[in-house]
Design a protein around this nucleic acid. Structure first.
Lengths: 146, 146
DNA sequence: TTTGGATAGTTGCACAAACAACTATATGCC
DNA sequence: GGCATATAGTTGTTTGTGCAACTATCCAAA
């Protein structure tokens, strides 16, 4: 067993993603405390739309690593919150292009600051070279399994 | 910003736990392919009961990092699958002690082998000293936020 | 031009998570 | 003993996920 470095308790943490769960919960609490009425999952969709809006739901699936029904419902909820709009593509009528509302554009700065803050709290005691190693290992894990 | 090592794309991965999500999905597929009719979340409860059974639901909450309603429903479903039994404590009638059935005891070896296999696939290309750093960083993140 | 396969998106169902509100039991203090 | 408070567990509601089945549209080959 070449790379089986896991004792039992550690195996459990790796599979259940205790660390990322803790980060997401902390960030959600910050959103709530700031009176921002959005979930982490909704934020993760907005996150990609802030980088580029007017992309299709399928592109959001790829970007957020979710399946199509999940994106359908996240976009449903974001639309109900008046944060995004579905616009039918003119070239291909199967496609919905997703655009941000003004209200969503306003959320970017505040939520990104809270996300930065959360990661700083999570990593405050960790030297940056060790953070780099950790990020790279997690990326390889993802690439190995996707 | 002392430890803010995150460019945008990396921030996203860290918060959403892309790597652990990929691991959990791969393991779930292995369970399904093996005809094992349990979810990863149910497995995570059994995991702790295999280490020690006859513990309370509250102790399962602490062990699995879940809240009480989540454990109530996971135990409900495990009980419906005939994998665990609630037994009222004699000392304190508020407490349910959770015991494994014979059927659940049989699952331990096979599911743990599949979990090992999944982590080996995830980490096959990663040197063990880098895995160690990654595990330690994730543990610190958890400790910093819990 | 029609038809068959691929692609984009939606809907139904089962399971799970977070939060609030609730019941039941235990405990400690007067 | 009786009451306030804490603890264990349950239930309701909203949100999200994964899978299968479905509709609509596109495209390419006969």
């Amino acid at each position: 067993m070449p790379n089986n470095q896991f004792k039992k308790g550690e195996l459990y943490s790796f599979i259940t993603g205790k660390a990322s769960t803790a980060i997401a919960r902390r960030l959600q609490k910050k959103f709530n405390a700031a009176g921002l009425n959005i979930t982490i999952e909704q934020w993760s969709v907005l996150y990609h739309l802030w980088k580029q809006e007017g992309i299709s739901q399928q592109e959001l699936c790829n970007a957020t690593f979710r399946d199509k029904p999940s994106i359908t419902r996240l976009v449903d909820n974001l639309e109900r919150l008046n944060l995004v709009k579905r616009v039918a593509s003119e070239n291909d009528r199967r496609i919905n292009l997703i655009y941000l509302t003004k209200q969503a554009q306003k959320l970017q700065e505040e939520t990104m600051a809270l996300a930065d803050e959360t990661l700083n709290e999570a990593l405050i005691t960790v030297p940056s070279d060790r953070i780099d190693v950790c990020k790279e290992v997690l990326q390889v894990v993802y690439d190995n399994l996707k």
